[in-house]
Nucleic acid binder design. Structure first.
Length: 416
DNA sequence: TCTGGGGTCCTAGGACCC
DNA sequence: TCTGGGGTCCTAGGACCC
């Protein structure tokens, strides 16, 4: 038995915690570079704003409908998310953190599930300020569906009872199901399957043949057979990626190199924090794909490492080598990224017969990470990143809220 | 002027093995 | 009627998730 706890319009709700004047008004949170809407309050949805809608299309709504916009502040959202999870772990024996705003709970052994859920929902809201909904079901897919159903007002929906379940699934659109996206939704509709109940009752061999094991599993889950287990211990990541769009088109090759170096260093920090080493590196650099009339160029290069590493210097030198000679003159580059691939635990890696002892390296990286943890990210680092306060490839974040919970200098009350 | 940043899993096909 | 019969590994691409 599973429950899914989901923060409503999570990013927007985080912004509202510390800015009460945002409550009751339409609000969207924008993607990096203030590009498009990635979270919308109910009031913003009521204005017809779509997920992913470009920010420049919303100007009239700002002017005439009082729409508020904020730049994404992931430091704030991550911290609020951790607070929510702390509460959930206090209340439930096993918790799987599924995303920044969603967690699955193991409900085994909890007797009055609905009463439990209502109490938990209130507690999360009171303690963190995040409004949320809880869906309960015998499978994860059904708990997700229950959560979706709960959003329309009830706050808590339990789909354990077969009658209640049948009633909800009868009108539940397939495209709202976990695991059914736009493409499959269209193909299902062409087969006359538009509701969760119809998918549940479709011939299983047809679903398996036409869509594969993934949708077949979803179908089984809709029938009440749990196929997807709770993952309360997160498996190690397989890859770590750091990429950004640039605020401007960048023609200066050194600036692109510094951007990639910055992403590489950041990726290595994440890698070491996870206690992993990388066996491969991938870089990409793209020109502005939205401006087809401009010269286009895509760089896409990767390499396997002879010896897996978590050392920023080693990865930086690889990235520099991969980028060498890759960029073209006169092309305005708009987006770039670095990915670390083939990740694994260092103790399971093949040692390098010919390498000199590398213990000193990890000590240096430990020191580097320690300094940055204590004094703030970017206090100590590597020269290849360029070290600029406002690099030409930097992000646009013109509507950024303060880091209320992670930076004391951002707290107006303390500045006295 | 203007369009995010992360991830996972599955499948098909080719190269190669005995 | 009836192609030999297994296998592994790798990659690219496509679907999905938030």
């Amino acid at each position: 038995m599973f429950a899914l706890v989901d923060g409503n319009n999570f990013y927007a709700s985080c912004e509202r915690i510390f800015q009460p004047r945002l409550r009751g008004v339409p609000l969207v949170v924008l993607s990096n570079n203030d590009g498009c809407a990635i979270a919308r309050t109910a009031e913003a949805k009521a204005l017809g704003i779509k997920m992913g809608q470009p920010a420049h299309e919303l100007k009239q709504l700002v002017k005439h409908q009082g729409l508020q916009m904020r730049s994404a502040n992931f430091a704030l959202y991550g911290d609020i998310s951790a607070r929510v999870v702390t509460i959930l772990r206090d209340e439930a024996p096993r918790v799987e953190v599924y995303s920044i705003d969603e967690s699955f709970l193991d409900m085994t052994g909890i007797r009055d599930r609905e009463a439990f859920a209502h109490r938990l929902r209130t507690k999360v809201h009171r303690w963190t300020g995040i409004p949320n909904c809880i869906g309960i079901g015998p499978t994860k897919t059904l708990a997700k569906a229950a959560n979706k159903a709960a959003k329309s007002g009830a706050g808590v929906v339990d789909l354990t009872e077969p009658d209640r379940r049948a009633q909800v699934l009868a009108t539940f659109p397939t495209t709202d199901l976990w695991g059914v996206g736009g493409k499959w939704g269209m193909r299902l509709a062409n087969m006359g399957i538009t509701t969760a109940a119809q998918l549940r009752d479709a011939p299983p061999d047809t679903i398996l043949r036409e869509f594969g094991v993934v949708l077949a599993r979803t179908q089984r889950e809709l029938q009440g057979h749990a196929c997807i287990e709770l993952e309360d211990v997160a498996p190690d990541k397989q890859q770590i990626m750091v990429s950004r769009s640039f605020a401007e088109r960048v023609k200066d090759h050194q600036a692109v190199a510094q951007a990639l170096a910055t992403f590489a260093v950041r990726a290595c920090e994440k890698l070491r924090k996870a206690g992993l080493v990388a066996g491969g590196v991938w870089i990409f650099v793209h020109s502005d794909v939205f401006r087809a009339e401009l010269p286009q160029h895509h760089v896409n290069r990767s390499i396997s490492l002879p010896v897996a590493t978590a050392d920023s210097r080693a990865v930086l030198s690889i990235v520099t080598r991969l980028l060498h000679g890759a960029l073209k003159q006169g092309v305005g580059y708009k987006k770039a990224g670095v990915a670390l691939l083939d990740l694994g635990r260092p103790e399971k890696r093949q040692a390098d017969l010919f390498a000199s002892a590398s213990a000193a390296n990890s000590k240096l990286m430990e020191a580097l990470d320690g300094i940055n943890r204590k004094f703030g990210r970017g206090v100590a680092g590597l020269g290849a990143t360029g070290w600029k306060e406002r690099p030409e490839w930097g992000m646009r974040q013109n509507m950024l809220s303060p880091n209320y919970t992670t930076r004391s200098s951002d707290l107006p009350l303390i500045n006295c």
